[in-house]
Each structure stands twice: as structure tokens, then as C-alpha cells.
Write a protein that binds this DNA or RNA. Structure first.
Length: 826
RNA sequence: GCCCCGGUAGCCCAACGGCAGAGGCAGUGGUCUCAAACACCAUCCAGUGUGAGUUCGAAUCUCACCCGGGGCACCA
């Protein structure tokens, strides 16, 4: 018999397909605990790569372990199958995006099957199927009914290459997250989800995820939400050219206590407010400046060392706390879409304001004396604590105070009393821009009617199916290709029956993936996006596995969806993913694998060379799951050799199945039971690499027992090899199944049970106690694990080398940690 | 600039505050072979990034620094 990788794989793939081992039974959940184990579904671009191989190998350990421990496991797989690559491929090849998409899905599905994963294929879904996106549309309409989906005109991120708008989360360092092109701004009317309504809850509920999600992800989300507290302060603007010759402008500040130091006001040049306030004599200068600002890309605008620019608007604002008149400027260092788009500038205590003041020779007034040199002279703003100065008026007085919190509270109280301001909270998080000017996505189920306005497509007319466009029809034109599909876009208004047009944008694909984990619970359900009963049964996801690149995208959006659905009474939990594992990425020779670097490692070739089990084992054994793996450090050949060694054990067992291990070699039995016991703990702690090392140890011990100890006929050897098979089945299912068969068992090791650990075999009858003198090891004693402390101390002090080390000195203290250690202090 | 995470053998990684080594890779020596590869057996290898501190005892806890990786960065 030889270990023939290809033959073993081919043989068991067939058998497993017939056995149907991993279909999750809905009803079974009423009788046993459930485990919803989910790995992020892939986008179907080409075949699977090393990254997929890693994440699914890790995830499969968890799912398979669940089955062995008696859980009913829901482990579904599907495809996030809307998206740009398919559209680009369709343009290139003059075909329909579906052709590319579904061909790739079939390729990946077959690769997944070959890879021996324990997916429940009966629940497979694709977000680009009309039966799926019908419910994405339905959810959009429900969100809209609740005021959570709305349209507004605003300057948005525009990717000139992909010819579509992007959400804030998809812009990285001013560039398109997908294609890397420099993102510009455009004023467009677009659909948004009102995520900001949920900002506080998204922040607060992270408390439930503490310790169960990587700290890194929680920090990332906290930063992204960016909650800050301060005050909203109203400034009156008086100018003859304004309607009623005056109006108020609110500014948000985290330092209302420095209000006396405000020496000018700045409005974001690209905010509508700036144009409204601008005095006629400044109009020309302002327009010229605004044009400059608009031309700038985010990349140059975000450069922190860029000199400050701006123009005066020719109006003055009145500081509500002391009635002082301060000039109002327009500048690009103030953001139009944060707070009110306007700020009070306190140059003495804010570096950005100080830079601006120095550039335009505006006054600087210190109101907090921190003991540092005067910012006006040094050009360095002071933000620390200090004593308030120059801060007194009829309305409020801070002078002499030294406590910042007291200063803030006092000013806010004064503002609230006079109605000139209130305490306020602000978030960095913006609403989620979900419109995309592309074809291969979920159509937005809205009709625009000249008479009725925005009209929802009635539920019974869902899904709004994509028209049959392909090739050149899909070329980016800056408007959605759907707008040019006249047969599709022209439609009768559902309300009045008059001529109307469909909304021609499609949804961001992150909308599709924000609820797919719920659909898996009842993928065939036709009365709603999911059967609430099924979701009650399976939800939430107990263990989610995926890459950290989705820390503020998919994970935040899914949390938002779950909370909205909770408020709609459709799910009874508030967080979708109870526990999260972020696997590292597979790199090669210290660098990310990429075509341009020529350091890509082909998964297909590796699988062909070493076999599925060896590659899976290599990836799982490489290190802690969350660490990055460098393929150059790994040895699939070593993994294959180990598997062969393990497999050979199964041929050396000569006892019959079912033989009582109690009569077997105790030393080997102890190793077996200790290994099984520890393996469970290691898996539960996601320490799969260590678990594999322990199985290797057991294999070595068993080999030794067969060759130079108990011999192949000993029942303990059968027990050990069976344990090896079961433990190995989590990582190397083909080899494990083959071993299981050679041991005389029926196929289906994946659905056997976890070996029962005999606690009595976990205690050693003798342990080595270490005796230290001054913390240095001097002697070792073989003692009973139950040895009393005083007895151990007596033995230790009686030891000859110990006495020699003490060398006649007085013993000051003896620390005894029975049965493992004694430390003598002299 | 700010915030996280990590530095243990030539390499990847283990080690409830208690003997620095579980496992693997590579290396070396042997068995097998006409020879080699494979396989098998044996074996070499660091005092834990640096410096202080706490402790009977520190890779582990504390502080500072160095190096590497990641995140945030005109958000008022």
C-alpha cells in the first residue's frame, strides 16, 4: 500500500458527495446546540487563490470541530456576485457580466469541493440572482419607509476610472480603494443610508463584542465612528445683502471654553453656506477661489503640510459671548460635510487656526495660559490645561478657573441660558452613499415621476430585474448604463400611470453582503428576505472568519443592517457576529503576492504537487491564525511527509475495531488522552497551529510504541491511531478518512464523535520537581503529584547538591509550589 | 505626529510569573542503496530587541528606548 494523494482525493470526493455529511437540519436545533460558523463569501474573480485556501482551511477546523462535539452546524457558502470586475470583463469580451460571473462561480465551487471543506451546499446563494436581489430591493424600500434611505445632493467622491461614486469607506488616502485612481469631487444627487442615526448604538454595542472580536477591529470602528463632545454655538451675521439683513450660523466646537479666543470664523469654501454669506464686493474673489478648491484632488487637499489658503467673505459674525465682531473667511481647511461646515477659529489654541491666522495676519488672543510661550510669537498653539485669562463678559466669566471641564460646563450653561448655543455631540461617521453609476449591481427600486416625484416600486412588482445589456452597452459614460437602456428605464408611474423613469443607478455591493448571513438561514424563503423563525433558530452567527480589510466596511454595514432589522422586529439580536476571527494574509518573500512583483504562488499548482491535505495542513500549521504567513517560510513537503507518517500508522494497527483500550499500554494511553484533552482547549482558543504540533507529537509517540514498545497489536496503539485520525480530520480530511477506513470503520469520520477523555489518564504518577537555590536550578526530584508541600520541602533540603549549593548559609526562606518547584532563598 | 500589535535557535513558531523548547523547516552524522533521491534513526543550535524596575524567581508584569508591521491623521 502506498499513500497515493490523487487516488485518495478522487475516491473520497465521490463517497462524501453520496453521504451528504454536512447538511444542517433545521429541526435538529431543537434537540441539540447549534453552531453557526461562517466564512466571508468570496467575490467570483477567477479561481480560488492562496488567501481563500487559508481562510477556509482555518474556518473548516472550527466547523468540523463543531460537528464532532455534537453541535448541529450551519456552515453555508455562497457568492458576493455583483461587482465591477464582471462588468469590465464583459466590456472587454463583448458579453454579459453574468457570463463571466457564473462561469467563475462554477470554477470556484468545484475548487471548493476539491478542497474538502465541510460546507452545506444546499444553502448556496448568489447575490446577483433575482431571487436574492429581490429582497435586497425589498429591504431598501423598508429602510426608506423608515426614513433610513434618502436622496440628497452633495459633493461626493468620484472615481474617474471606474466612473462611479464611492462611499467614504471606499476612499483610501484620497484614492479609489478598488483601482487606486485619484478620487475627485462631484456635486451629485445620490441615495444614502442614514447610518449616522445609528452612530451611538454602533459605538455602544461594541461593549458586547469586547473580548470576542479582535481589539484592532473594535479600535478601527471606534476611530471611524469618531464621536466627540462639545457645543453648538450660534453666531449672528449681519449684512445688508442677506435676506432680512441678518442670519445666524451655527458652529460646532469641542472647546467652547475658548470662545473668548475666537478671532475669526471660517466657512468651508465648498459648502453652500459660503456662497450664501459672501458679500457682493467679494463675490468675484470668492468664486475664483472656489474654482481653485474644486479643482484640487483629495490627495493634495489632505496633505497636512500644505500652506493655508482662503478668502474673506466680506461679512462679520458676532460672538455671542461678548458681542465682538469677527471677520468671516472661506477656506478649504474646513470640511463642508462635518459639523455645520463652519468653525469658530481660536488661533491661540488650535494649530490649524493659528497657521491660518499667521498666513492672513489675523489677530491671536490667548485665553488659556498653559505656562507655555505665547502662541502668537512662537507659532505653536497650546492645547493643554491652564488658567483662563481674557475670558470675561456680562454673560460669563472663566478668568482664574484652571479646570477645563469646569470651563466647558460653565460656558455651555451660559450659552444654553441665552439660547446662543447648546452642548452637542458630533460624529466623524457620515451617511453611507449607496448609489453606483454601474450596471452589474442591484437596481434601486424607485421610479421618478414628473408629477408624483420619487415613487417606490410596489412590492408585488419586485424584483426590478436588470435589462439584458452586454459588451459596449456597458461602457462607462458617467451615467449608469441603465439610463441608456430606454426600454427598461421608461416606465409608467406606479402611482399615476403617467410617463416616468426608473432610477438608473445600482446599489453598492456592500448592500448585498450586509444581510446575506440572514438569508442562509432560509435560502428558499419566498415571503420575505428570510424566515424569522429560521433566523431565531440559527442566528446570530456564532463564529465569523474573514479578513481585517472589512473592519469598517462590511462589518460596520452588517452591524447597521442588523440593528435596523432588530428595530423592525425581524431579528431578535442586535449584533450579527458574536465572535470574529481575522486571519492573516498569505505573502511571499516578505511581499504581498502580486502579478507585477512576479511572486504569486499558484494554489492550483501547489495542490497538484502536494495534495489538498498537505496544503491545508501547511497553512494551518504555519502560525497563529491571525498572523501573516510568508509562503517562503513554509514547507508543504514537510506537511506531506508528516501526513504519510500518520497514514502509515493506520497500516500497523493489527487489533480489531472495538477492542477495549483499557488493557493497553498505559504510557501511550496517557499521551493519547492528554493530547485529545489539550487539542480541544487549543481549538477553542483558536490555536490551531499548536494543536497540529500536538498531533505530530502523538504520531511520534505512537510510532515509537509500535516499533520499540507495545507493538501494533496493543489496543492502546489502536486507540492512539484512531485519535490521530479524528484530530487530523479537522485539517486533513482525505488522509483522516483513508486512515479511518484502514482502521476498519465505515466512511464518514467527519460525523463520528470526539474521543472521550479518561480524566484518570491525565494525572501522572510521578512528576519532576525542580529545586532551585537563589532561583537557579540545582536538583530535580521525582515525586508523586499529590506530594504535600512540607514533605517536598523536606526532600529538597535533604538533597545533597542542594545542600552543597546552600553551602552552610542560613536558609532565609523556602518557597514551595508542590509538586513542581522548590526555591531556597539564602 | 498620535494610537494599536509584535521582536524567543539560521528560519517558522511553542512555553498557568517557576527547568527557555512542544512541533516543524534547514543543517550535521548514521541506517537503507551499486549510487542517489525518498524514508527512517540520531544530533547540533538561542538565554528571549536594549536598559531599568517589581518579585524568592521575569520571555511572561511595569516604565523608557530601539527595530518591524498595521491603523488614524486639517473631523474644529
Amino acid at each position: 500500500m502506498t499513500y497515493d494523494v490523487e487516488a485518495i482525493q478522487a475516491k473520497w470526493q465521490q463517497v462524501w458527495a453520496d453521504l451528504d455529511l454536512f447538511t444542517a437540519e433545521d429541526r435538529a436545533v431543537d434537540e441539540k446546540p447549534k453552531l453557526y460558523a461562517l466564512t466571508m463569501f468570496p467575490y467570483p474573480s477567477g479561481d480560488l487563490h492562496m488567501g481563500h485556501a487559508e481562510v477556509t482551511a482555518l474556518h473548516d477546523v472550527i466547523a468540523r470541530y463543531g460537528w464532532l462535539r455534537g453541535y448541529e452546524v450551519l456552515n453555508p457558502m455562497g457568492w458576493d456576485s455583483f461587482g465591477l470586475p464582471a462588468e469590465n470583463a464583459a466590456i472587454r469580451n463583448d458579453e454579459h457580466p453574468a457570463t463571466y460571473t457564473y462561469a467563475n462561480i462554477e470554477t470556484q465551487a468545484s475548487s471548493f469541493r476539491n478542497y474538502g471543506l465541510s460546507f452545506d451546499w444546499s444553502r448556496r446563494l448568489h447575490t446577483s440572482d433575482p431571487e436574492y436581489y429581490r429582497w435586497t430591493q425589498w429591504l431598501f424600500l423598508k429602510f426608506r419607509e423608515r426614513g433610513l434611505a434618502y436622496r440628497k445632493s452633495s459633493p461626493v467622491n468620484w472615481c474617474p476610472v471606474d466612473q462611479t461614486v464611492l462611499a467614504n469607506e471606499q476612499v483610501v488616502d484620497g484614492a479609489c480603494e478598488r483601482c487606486g485612481a485619484e478620487v475627485t469631487k462631484r456635486e451629485l444627487t445620490q441615495w444614502y443610508f442614514k447610518v449616522t442615526d445609528y452612530a451611538q448604538r454602533l459605538l455602544d454595542d461594541m461593549e458586547h463584542l469586547e473580548g470576542r472580536w479582535p481589539e484592532r477591529v473594535l479600535t478601527l470602528q471606534r476611530n471611524w465612528i469618531g464621536r466627540s463632545t462639545g457645543a453648538q454655538v450660534q453666531f449672528r451675521i449681519e449684512a445688508p445683502h442677506l435676506e432680512d439683513s441678518s442670519r445666524t450660523v451655527g458652529v460646532y466646537t469641542t472647546r467652547p471654553d475658548t470662545l473668548f479666543g475666537a478671532t475669526f470664523m471660517v466657512v468651508a469654501a465648498d459648502a453652500p453656506l459660503a456662497a450664501q454669506l459672501c458679500a457682493p464686493e467679494q463675490r468675484e474673489e470668492f468664486e475664483a477661489y472656489l474654482a481653485e478648491v474644486r479643482k484640487e484632488s483629495d490627495i493634495s487637499r489632505l496633505a497636512t503640510d500644505k500652506p493655508k489658503t482662503g478668502v474673506p467673505l466680506g461679512v462679520e459674525a458676532i460672538n455671542p459671548v461678548n458681542g465682538e465682531r469677527i471677520p468671516v473667511w472661506a477656506a478649504d481647511y474646513v470640511l463642508a460635510d462635518y459639523g455645520t461646515g463652519a468653525i469658530m477659529a481660536v488661533p491661540a489654541h488650535d494649530q490649524r487656526d493659528l497657521d491660518f491666522a499667521r498666513a492672513f495676519d489675523l489677530p491671536v488672543r490667548r485665553v488659556v495660559d498653559t505656562g507655555d510661550p505665547n502662541p502668537e510669537e512662537t507659532g505653536i498653539a497650546t492645547a493643554g490645561d491652564g488658567v483662563y485669562v481674557n475670558s470675561a463678559s456680562d454673560l460669563a466669566t472663566l478668568n482664574g478657573l484652571t479646570d477645563k471641564t469646569a470651563g466647558i460646563n460653565s460656558i455651555v450653561a451660559a450659552l444654553e441660558e441665552t439660547g446662543a448655543g447648546t452642548g452637542a455631540v458630533n460624529f466623524r461617521l457620515r451617511d453611507w452613499l449607496l448609489s453606483r453609476q454601474r450596471f452589474w449591481g442591484c437596481p434601486i427600486p424607485i421610479v421618478h415621476c414628473p408629477d408624483c416625484g420619487e415613487v417606490a416600486v410596489p412590492e408585488e412588482q419586485l424584483p426590478v430585474v436588470l435589462p439584458d445589456l452586454k459588451g459596449a452597452d456597458l461602457k462607462p459614460k458617467g451615467v449608469s448604463p441603465l439610463a441608456a437602456a430606454t426600454d427598461w428605464v421608461n416606465v409608467a408611474c406606479p402611482d399615476c400611470g403617467g410617463d416616468a423613469k426608473r432610477d438608473s443607478d445600482t446599489m453598492d455591493t456592500f448592500v448585498d453582503s450586509s444581510w446575506y448571513f440572514l438569508r442562509y438561514c432560509s435560502p428558499e424563503y419566498t415571503d420575505g428576505p428570510f424566515d424569522p423563525e429560521a433566523v431565531r433558530r440559527w442566528g446570530p452567527v456564532d463564529q465569523y472568519v474573514g479578513g481585517v480589510e472589512h473592519a469598517v466596511l462590511h462589518l460596520m454595514y452588517s452591524r447597521f443592517f442588523t440593528k435596523v432589522l432588530h428595530d423592525m422586529g425581524m431579528v431578535d439580536f442586535i449584533e450579527p457576529f458574536s465572535s470574529l476571527l481575522n486571519q492573516g494574509v498569505v505573502i511571499n518573500k516578505g511581499k504581498k503576492m502580486s502579478k507585477s512583483l512576479g511572486n504569486g504562488v499558484s494554489l492550483g499548482e501547489q495542490l497538484a504537487e502536494y495534495g489538498v491535505d498537505a496544503i491545508r495542513l501547511t497553512l494551518v500549521f504555519a502560525g497563529p491564525p491571525e498572523d501573516n504567513i510568508d509562503w517562503a517560510d513554509l514547507s508543504p513537503g514537510g506537511a506531506l511527509r508528516f501526513l504519510q507518517r500518520a497514514w502509515r500508522l493506520s497500516g500497523d494497527v493489527t487489533s480489531e475495531p472495538g477492542v477495549d483500550p483499557a488493557t493497553g499500554d498505559v504510557a501511550l494511553r496517557k499521551v493519547t488522552h492528554r493530547t485529545v484533552h489539550d487539542a480541544a482547549e487549543l481549538i477553542e482558543g483558536m490555536r490551531f497551529n499548536v494543536m497540529v504540533a500536538r498531533v505530530m507529537e502523538l504520531v511520534n509517540a505512537t510510532r515509537k510504541a509500535i516499533d520499540s514498545g507495545a507493538g501494533g497489536a496493543d489496543p492502546a496503539v489502536r486507540e492512539a491511531v484512531e485519535a490521530v485520525s479524528v484530530l487530523l480530520s479537522l485539517v486533513a480530511p482525505y488522509t483522516a478518512e483513508e486512515m479511518w477506513e484502514r482502521l476498519g470503520h465505515a466512511p464518514g469520520i467527519a460525523r463520528t464523535s470526539w474521543p472521550v477523555v479518561d480524566e484518570s489518564l491525565l494525572v501522572a504518577e510521578a512528576v519532576t520537581a525542580v529545586v532551585q537555590v537563589q532561583g537557579k536550578v540545582k536538583a530535580r526530584l521525582e515525586v508523586s503529584p499529590e506530594i504535600p508541600a512540607d514533605e517536598l520541602e523536606r526532600l529538597a533540603l535533604a538533597d545533597e547538591t542542594v545542600q552543597k549549593a546552600i553551602d552552610g548559609r542560613a536558609v532565609r526562606k523556602v518557597i514551595v509550589r508542590a509538586p513542581k518547584l522548590v526555591n531556597v532563598v539564602v
